[in-house]
């Protein structure tokens, strides 16, 4: 890791003003520092957001919920409010990382974490996402990679909170150069492009202030398949909600961004959840455009089965 300067930001506005391309925002540091140690990023300066006046913690607000950017995964996991009204989110937080990491990791940092693709995390590889010309994962060891083709990068988003928040139709409050704004989480995430090689649409100087959850989802579940009982990124995960408005089904671990299965959500409204044949048909449709790579075809099977299990659990 290269030497860098460190400054605690007094406010979100000042943090945003101070930020240039040689600096990085620093929250829990659990993702940023690992990338710095691997020399994947070598900022000159760290701007610590923990000292800024960002909202912290969980609070109820006009029917919905506000989760401050600095709220830790541990806070979310332990919040009674979230456990009761947004079980999908509480479960996602509880299944993420390890207790030590969850004590430190913040919500905003979790959504902004960079891929765990093992080529990306290898400092000797100059892959497309890091500004290079090609993606060695596409033809290499892609067991953990994407089954949906969203960009030249085959990395999956490994945040456990992301699929849950997409399913919850969360909104993200941001402080940027032009003041505060709010965007839907589906606009917040976007697959990387030629010119913007990252997984979100945030500008360089945008500070995430909070996550807003519009309405309860007490009937919801998060399922995560791992290669170990704990402390592993999702091979595939599913966030599912059943409510008066219908179903929400969002997958993690299958693409650059969480994938909402819109047609499946619609079809579920008219399908009897105990009718496996009918469900299987819907599944096959939902995955018709999946493009598994050489070593990750199992993810299609796994995703279908996790979805089926989630639906069963919510239909009981």
């Amino acid at each position: 890791m290269k030497a860098f300067s460190y400054s605690p930001a007094p406010t979100a506005a000042e943090a945003s003003n101070e930020k240039d391309s040689r600096a990085e925002f620093f929250a829990g540091g659990t993702d940023l520092l690992t990338r710095m140690k691997l020399n994947i990023v070598s900022p000159d300066a760290l701007i610590d957001l923990k000292s800024a006046d960002l909202p912290n913690g969980v609070s109820e607000q006009n029917g919905g919920l506000t989760i401050g950017a600095l709220t830790t995964l541990r806070d979310i996991e332990q919040s009674e409010l979230i456990a009761e009204k947004f079980p999908v989110l509480a479960q996602a937080a509880a299944l993420a990382a390890t207790p030590q990491i969850r004590n430190r990791a913040t919500v905003a940092g979790n959504l902004l974490q960079r891929p765990r693709c093992w080529y990306y995390r290898n400092r000797h590889v100059d892959c497309w996402l890091k500004g290079g010309s090609d993606c060695p994962a596409a033809t290499g060891q892609n067991q953990q990679h994407a089954i949906f083709d969203q960009s030249p990068c085959k990395a999956v988003h490994t945040s456990d909170l992301a699929p849950a928040l997409v399913a919850l139709n969360a909104r993200v409050k941001v402080r940027g150069a032009d003041g505060e704004r709010e965007l839907s989480i589906e606009d917040f995430f976007a697959p990387p492009t030629e010119d913007r090689r990252r997984e979100t649409t945030l500008a360089d100087d945008d500070v995430v202030l909070s996550i807003e959850l519009p309405s309860d989802a007490s009937h919801s579940v998060y399922l995560k398949a791992m290669d170990r009982k704990v402390w592993a990124f999702a091979l595939v995960s599913v966030a599912a909600i059943k409510s008066a408005e219908g179903w929400a089904v969002v997958l993690g671990g299958v693409a650059n961004n969480p994938v909402r299965l819109g047609p499946l959500e619609k079809a579920l409204e008219n399908t009897d959840a105990s009718d496996h044949n009918a469900l299987d048909k819907q599944h096959d449709k939902a995955f018709a455009d999946a493009e598994p790579l050489e070593h990750n075809g199992y993810k299609v099977t796994l995703a279908k089965r996790l979805i089926r299990r989630a639906i069963e659990q919510l239909s009981d």
Partner: peptide, 22 residues
């Protein structure tokens, strides 16, 4: 990766030893 000859998990994150829960 046999195409490029690199070891991909020379770490404790992706070289997965069992945890207590396993």
């Amino acid at each position: 990766d046999h195409n490029i000859g690199l070891v991909l998990n020379a770490d404790l994150e992706e070289y997965k030893i069992p945890t207590v829960a396993d």
